[in-house]
Amino acid sequence: MAVLVVAEHDNASLKDATHKVVTAAKAIGGDVDVLVAGENAGAVAQEAAKIEGVRKVLHADGATLAKQLAEPMQALIAPLMDSYDALLFPASTTGKNAAPRIAAQLDVMQLSGIIAVESADTFVRPIYAGNALITVKDEQAKKVITVQPTAFKAAGDGGSASVETAAAPAGPFKSAFVSEEVAVSDRPELTAAKRVVSGGRAMGSSDEFHKVLEPLADKLGAAIGASRAAVDAGYAPNDFQVGQTGKVVAPELYVAIGISGAIQHLAGMKDSKVIVAINKDEEAPIFQVADVGLVQDYKTAVPELMDELTKAGL
């Protein structure tokens, strides 16, 4: 048995999601290798080699892999699968984009977003926005799986795997990267943050959203998230969205401000350790999952919370 894990990275640094997927790979059993596909990503490959329990790192480097688009990823990975029994991606937008292409080429039905490994061929994944969990037996000769990183503990460092080079696909491909708008922020990354402060439609405007959430996020060292309603209304950018179709987060502390708690939102945050909800509507469904519910208008509650956090030494 050998499992190939595809690393999540931005060519400069390895994302923690990779360590979590390695944990899922180890639970399946057998040798675990990590693939770093990118451009000028040598440092990332070195980082991946340090993950505990990794046999070797495959490093494919070239211009076609700079953005890890689906077509070159397929061209790179599908042939590699001759040597592996399972392929694991993090359930990131990169993983979700590429994995099914490879699965289809291998004639394999994919398992999306697993949250537990019960045995080498049995997995648990959520359906219906997490309102049901299915246990699935996958007896296909090869498996293609995307892993919900928040459901697994990160594998530690301390390994010293060898790094081997794999050839980047030459192309040409029928899709091409044009441009990107990547938010630059000093705050922690949303899916990896220990604390998250999220705002909903109650904010009423983009200005208000940022005015209310940013000072609190700064005080807590938190990432900022948003409900779908707030993103749809244009108060926050798409990459802030927490929920079924956005990001799944599981921080130690999740503060939901002016969020009613639609099923779709709860799907993205209900595995947080401690949930605080601030909402003036006592009947809001968010209170059914909140550990601490503050029934108060956020306009007065957030400044008071800031004061109390200052008093508490933050």
């Binding site: 394999v108 039905m109 398992l111 049995t122 959520p126 997490g130 309102n131 049901a132 969990l133 299915i134 246990t135 699935v136 037996k137 996958d138 007896e139 296909q140 209900k270 949930i275 006592e282 209170f287 059914q288 999952v289 909140a290 550990d291 601490v292 519910g293 503050l294 029934v295 108060q296 509650a301 008071e304 919370l305 004061d307 109390e308």
Partner: peptide, 22 residues
Amino acid sequence: RLKVVKTAEPPKRQGGVKVKTA
């Protein structure tokens, strides 16, 4: 290709306490 062995409710998260002040 896949066999669903079991369908279950997710573990229920217990709502906690409501408080009046920050």
